[in-house]
Design a protein around this nucleic acid. Sequence first.
DNA 1: TTTATGGCTGTCA
DNA 2: ATGACAGCCATAA
Length: 111
Amino acid sequence: MSPDYASIYEVVENIPRGRVATYGQVAALAGLPRRARQVGYALHALPPGNTIPWHRVVNAKGEVSARSDGDGDLEQRARLESEGVQFNARGRIDLRQFRWLISAQDPVDPL
DNA sequence: TTTATGGCTGTCA
DNA sequence: ATGACAGCCATAA
């Protein structure tokens, strides 16, 4: 696995329950600006049976992006709702309310 | 190597 | 608000 992927996974793991982050946000926090897309690839390449809360990553619009593969988006939405993340009638999340704000309490890279 | 594609994003109409 | 476009750059072929 490349160090970039490791960084991305590390950031995603730090997203608190009931919160979400955008791809661009995760990329930036992982020290990989401008690589929102690659975050998507990283999550896509995620092996099954891991502890990574991949479902807490959504696009900048606050909605779950459709997979080119199958129907992982449905499960993603279901998982988020079960965590308390609310979707509005448009199927979107209010980022003003649920977006994860980084802070000293939830370090991305605790050495 | 080059080309095409994509779980994105910011800007502009 | 939505839709079209152009950057972005890692992967896959």
